[in-house]
Simulated assay, not measured.
Amino acid sequence: MNTFQRKSVPFCDVRCGQFAKKAVASFGIIYKLAPREKIISLPLEGAVRQEFIETADAVFKDVLDRIESKHPKLIRRMWNAESYIDNELLKPEMLPIDHYYALSLIDAFLVHHVIALAIKADEKD
C-alpha cells in the first residue's frame, strides 16, 4: 500500500495504480507521494509489472467510456494490457524514469492507443 496525502485532507491509503493515481495525472491534483525507486531496466517484472497492468486496465475502462465508441465489445477483445505495458508504454531510451511519472504516462498515452483500436474496430465493421 502506498500513502497519499492531499493538503487539508486526511491521509488515505490507496493502492498505487488505482483511481487516486489517475486523478493525479488527469486532474493535476497534487499529492505528496511516498518515495519510490526509479525504473532502470526493461521489461518490467513482478509486482511492478502487475501494478502497471492493473493501472492500464483501469485507465482503459475509463477511456473507453469517454470515447463512446460504436464497437466497445470489439475494442475490449482487441485490448491487451500486458502487451501495451511490455511493448508500447516505456522504451529503453526513456530510462531511468521515476516510477510515479511512468505510471502517469499510462493515462497520458493510453487514450491514443484506445482511439487507434476504435478506428480498427470501425474498419472491421
Rank of each mutant, 00 (worst) to 15 (best):
Q50Y: 01
S26D: 14
R76I: 06
A34E: 15
L44M: 10
I85E: 02
H112S: 11
K120H: 11
I30H: 11
R76G: 05
H112Y: 11
R76W: 02
G17V: 07
R49I: 04
I75F: 09
E93L: 05
V63E: 15
D86T: 07
A56N: 12
F27V: 00
I29H: 09
L110P: 01
V24T: 04
D122H: 10
D57I: 01
N80M: 05
Q50G: 00
D107K: 01
I67H: 04
R66A: 14
P10K: 12
F4D: 04
R6E: 14
K21A: 04
S41H: 07
P72M: 13
V24W: 02
A81F: 01
I85L: 04
A23G: 11
L117Q: 09
Y84M: 07
I119W: 08
C12V: 13
L42E: 03
S83P: 00
V59H: 00
I97N: 01
L110C: 02
H113I: 01
C12S: 12
A108W: 05
V24G: 03
V63H: 03
Y84R: 05
P43A: 06
L117A: 05
I75M: 11
R49T: 02
L117V: 07
N80Q: 11
A102P: 01
L103W: 03
D62K: 02
K7P: 02
Y101W: 09
R66V: 04
F19W: 15
M94L: 11
L103Y: 00
L33N: 08
D107S: 15
L74I: 13
I67L: 08
E68K: 15
L33D: 04
P35V: 09
L74C: 07
D65E: 14
A34V: 14
S8A: 11
I67G: 06
I97A: 00
D86L: 06
D98A: 14
S26T: 06
M94K: 07
A56M: 10
V24R: 11
E37F: 08
A25S: 14
K70G: 10
M78Q: 15
M1I: 08
D107A: 11
L44Y: 03
L89C: 06
L74V: 13
I85G: 01
Y100D: 15
L110E: 00
K70C: 05
A118M: 10
M94H: 13
F27K: 04
R49L: 08
K32T: 12
K22R: 14
A47R: 12
L33S: 03
A118W: 00
L95M: 07
I85W: 03
E93F: 06
P96E: 11
A108E: 08
R77S: 13
P72G: 13
E82T: 14
L95R: 08
D62V: 00
G28A: 08
I97W: 01
P92H: 11
F27W: 09
A102L: 07
F11Q: 13
I106V: 15
N2C: 08
H113Q: 13
L105W: 04
D125V: 04
P10F: 09
A102Q: 04
G17P: 08
F60A: 10
R66Y: 01
D125S: 12
T55A: 10
F109V: 05
E51Q: 12
E82Q: 13
G17K: 06
V114A: 06
A23N: 10
S41Q: 15
E88N: 08
E88D: 09
V24S: 09
L89M: 05
M94S: 04
I119R: 15
K32Y: 10
S83L: 03
L74Q: 15
G28M: 08
L64N: 07
F60P: 03
D122R: 12
